[in-house]
Amino acid sequence: MLDLSRHVLGETDTPVPLETSDDCRAAATELVRQGHRTLLIFTHDLDRKVYDDADFIDAVSALARRHHLSWVRILVQDMEPVIHGRHRLVELAGRLTSRIEIRHAHPDHRSFNKAYLVVDDTGLLLRDTARGYSGSVNFYAPHAAREYAALFHKAWDVGERDPNLNRLHL
């Protein structure tokens, strides 16, 4: 099991390799748990093995509620799996609508073949491919984190709220 107990957001500049969905879930949960204000997730299909975990949901909920300026933005390339099945992160977004927003990536951004998570413009979890689990996490990578955040914001600005999310039973 991946041990990130000594890694501190904003301090530990040591990339840690990720190989499995368990590694990605543990790294995502620990990064978000240490976050203070912002979380960006760029994902192919809101991978259930990583983002539909009780500990991860608790961490996202705590971050979203931590401060009145906290927010979470999630950009999904393929909404079908999200719409056609119960997902705890979608349910949380339905309860915290002023803090968590999910958008469908514009077609121009649906072929981007990486997945990533940025916390507080400092921590970065980067998966080498959108559907794979190999990659790395770094708790202090402000330059790379800001680069990926900038990519995210460009895609976010043209992304759309999927009307199907409004119809989900939350």
Results as ranks from 00 to 15, higher is better:
H87A: 00
A62H: 03
A62I: 06
K49M: 12
M79K: 10
R65C: 08
D58C: 02
H84E: 15
D47E: 13
Q77T: 07
A59H: 02
A54E: 12
I41S: 10
L69V: 04
A64Q: 06
G35K: 01
D78Y: 07
I83C: 08
L75R: 00
H68N: 15
A62E: 15
D47F: 00
I83M: 05
H67N: 14
W71F: 15
E80K: 09
I41P: 02
F42C: 00
D58L: 14
H36I: 01
H44Y: 14
Y51P: 01
P81Q: 06
D53W: 07
R66W: 03
R37I: 10
L46A: 04
R33Y: 08
G35C: 00
H87I: 07
D53N: 03
P81K: 03
D53C: 01
I83A: 14
D78S: 07
H67M: 07
V32A: 03
G85C: 03
L69G: 12
E80H: 09
V50Q: 07
A59E: 04
L40T: 10
H68L: 13
L69T: 15
Q34K: 01
V76K: 04
D55T: 02
V82C: 12
V60T: 12
R86W: 07
D78K: 12
V60Y: 07
K49Y: 06
R37H: 13
F56P: 00
Y51R: 08
D55I: 04
A59Y: 02
R65A: 12
L40Q: 05
I57M: 05
T43D: 08
R33I: 00
D78R: 08
D55R: 11
R33A: 14
D45N: 13
A62Y: 00
P81H: 05
A59K: 05
L69Q: 15
G35W: 00
R33T: 11
R86M: 03
L39R: 01
V76A: 08
E80I: 05
Q77F: 01
G85Q: 13
R65G: 10
L46I: 01
G85E: 13
D55N: 08
P81N: 04
R48H: 11
A59I: 07
W71K: 10
L75V: 13
V50C: 11
A54R: 11
V32E: 07
A54M: 07
I83Q: 10
A64D: 06
R48I: 06
L75K: 02
S61Q: 15
A64S: 10
Y51A: 00
H84W: 03
R48A: 14
L39N: 02
D78P: 04
V60W: 04
R86G: 05
R65Q: 13
H87Y: 02
V82R: 04
I57R: 01
H44K: 14
R48P: 09
D45V: 10
H67T: 12
F56L: 14
I41M: 02
I41L: 09
K49H: 15
E80C: 01
A62L: 12
R86A: 14
R73K: 10
H84A: 08
F56V: 07
D78M: 06
F56R: 06
H68D: 13
T38D: 11
D78G: 02
V76P: 03
D52C: 12
I57S: 02
V72Y: 09
Q34H: 03
V76C: 08
D78F: 06
I83H: 09
V32Y: 04
S70K: 05
P81R: 01
R73T: 10
L46H: 09
S61W: 03
R66L: 03
H87S: 00
